[in-house]
Amino acid sequence: MHNFEFVKPSSVADAVAALANGEAQPLSGGQTLIPSMKARLNAPEVLVSLTGIAEMQGVSRDGGALEIGAATPHATVAREAASHFPGLAGLAGQIGDPAVRARGTIGGSIANNDPSACYPAAALGTGATIVTDRREIAADDFFQGMFTTALDEGELITKVRFPIPGASAYAKFLQPASRFALTGVFVAKYASGVRVAVTGASEDGVFRWAEAEAALSSNFDAEAVAGLSVPANGMISDLHGTSEYRAHLVRVMTQRAVRAAS
């Protein structure tokens, strides 16, 4: 790995100032970034660690919403969100393995927007708000395709605010080598309707399945989506599964999520 300058600020303001240098990148848990740097897919000149910033840590309830500091590890979310928002805690507890969950963070996952990552499904499936150092971005506007987000250069996610649904669940079809989702579906039921977000399947990254949302909003039952399907065109096809297989999994995992949430 190429060497770099390591800095560890203790406030968001100092981190943003350090990131203003165009050659600097933020480092959160590093569970994706460090392997990428070893493979020389990424070679920042400066790494700005976010692990020493107290205001970016923790899980807190604010009325009907759960706010999670961007540098909060998955293991902490799995533990501390469980009584408030079990669907989200269940998702966090399925990411990677215990050592990955001890370091990897929600902000890192959402900022990276890997097309097979779990957290983007929860953010989009709840209509979460991505809070940065300078603005608030609705999840519907945030995810803009594989590894692409609405974040500007040097902009830092500081927390994510999830409206807590009446019922929710994440159903993940595990790709057992990478431990990412071969296909994962997050379903959330609100008084205003049901949201369904799919990760791991589309070449455009996480997406909402509008047809299933409409069907489940009128009848929150796994059978309500039994006759629906998504087109295989545009689904990821690789050695783990064809696009047709992933399209099939979208419906199956949606049904499993609805059953788990009911």
């Binding site: 560890k8 480092l27 590093g30 692990t51 050592a99 001890a102 370091r103």
Partner: peptide, 20 residues
């Protein structure tokens, strides 16, 4: 894997400078 503050961590995937 080692324990860092009681948590399991892959020591090949954490920077020493981050663990002062």
């Amino acid at each position: 894997v080692v324990l860092v503050d009681g948590q399991p961590v892959k020591s090949c995937t954490a920077f020493a400078a981050d663990l002062e």
